[in-house]
């Protein structure tokens, strides 16, 4: 068997032109679509020197965008964690009619365009939306303000946490929880001391992906935010604003921050996948 495998490999030796072509195509494609965009981002960001780069990031609008982005993620991610854990507990620990439908509905936001995710909140809370006049009369701002941005972010990140937890909790089964209850533990104690520690790495994995999307979301947020400089512009929107003003270096400086966030996410994600492969049920990207 081993010999045969070797011979198969040998038959496609290093000098084999078909093999070389295969490698060239694969690496060419990867370089074109992975390496080049990343490279361009950083080269353009520093194209006018480190000074301009740092100035661009120190700009009040840029700092306001950083603050807003962090704030939105700080609200949306914890909410998603609570909902995601509840949904996973529900789906993975109980059998009830409508369970499969519920899983499909939780996944639904993945198949909806981000622009539509923003649009739906305009239709509800915009000036001419269903609740628009009432909100205006009570002086409540949702659209073109923080609540709208948070809602749109929640929509696009809705499935992330539940999606990682459900398969993992299903694979674990409920016998450890049953054992805890038999030993006299309360429901909360069982959940906090047994269920949650068991899924902590897949929870972290879900949070990581959820956070990356929350901080980087563009389409949905762009629709609901109104893109008011220094007020409702998140980092991705700030990139657009600067780019459209032909302030390319500043645009790419802000973009490089987001690119670093993406790289950090990939590094942490890979560490989780390598170190805790068996405790992450769905070690696949989204």
């Amino acid at each position: 068997m081993r010999d045969l495998r070797l011979s198969l490999r040998a038959s496609s030796g290093r000098s084999d032109p078909a093999r070389l072509l295969f490698f060239a195509l694969c690496f060419g494609f990867l370089a074109l679509f992975l390496l080049l965009p990343l490279l361009v981002t950083f080269v353009e960001a520093f194209s006018r020197g480190v000074g301009v780069y740092l100035d661009s990031l120190a700009d009040p609008d840029a700092r306001s965008a950083i603050r807003l982005t962090l704030l939105v993620a700080a609200i949306a991610v914890p909410l998603n964690v609570v909902i995601g854990i509840a949904a996973a507990w529900l789906v993975a620990r109980f059998e009830f009619r409508g369970r499969q439908l519920l899983v499909s509905l939780i996944d639904l936001p993945f198949s909806v365009s981000p622009v539509i995710a923003g649009l739906v909140y305009i239709l509800l809370f915009g000036a001419q939306g269903y609740f628009g006049p009432w909100l205006k009369a009570h002086d409540i701002e949702i659209v073109f303000a923080l609540p709208g941005i948070v809602l749109a972010t929640l929509f696009v990140t809705f499935p992330f946490v539940a999606r990682e937890l459900i398969p993992h909790m299903q694979a674990l089964g409920g016998s450890e929880e049953e054992a805890a209850l038999m030993l006299g533990a309360s429901g909360w104690r069982t959940f906090l001391h047994v269920s949650l520690p068991n899924v902590k790495w897949s929870l972290l994995y879900g949070v990581l992906l959820c956070n990356a999307r929350a901080m980087g979301e563009f389409g949905a947020v762009s629709v609901v935010s109104g893109r008011i400089r220094g007020v409702t512009a998140t980092l991705p929107l700030q990139v657009e604003i600067l780019y459209n003003e032909y302030n390319t270096a500043a645009a790419f400086a802000v973009a490089s921050l987001l690119a670093m966030l993406a790289l950090l996410t990939l590094v942490l994600k890979s560490i989780l996948e390598w170190r805790f492969a068996d405790s992450i049920a769905a070690a696949r990207g989204h």
């Binding site: 563009f218 790419f252 973009a255």
Partner: peptide, 23 residues
């Protein structure tokens, strides 16, 4: 390389957009 495959998932779309436009 395996880890980098997920870059398009992790990279905010606006960043990808301006980078591709620049290329």
């Amino acid at each position: 390389v395996d880890a980098a495959i997920d870059l398009p998932f992790a990279l905010p779309t606006a960043v990808a957009g301006v980078a591709l436009a620049a290329i």
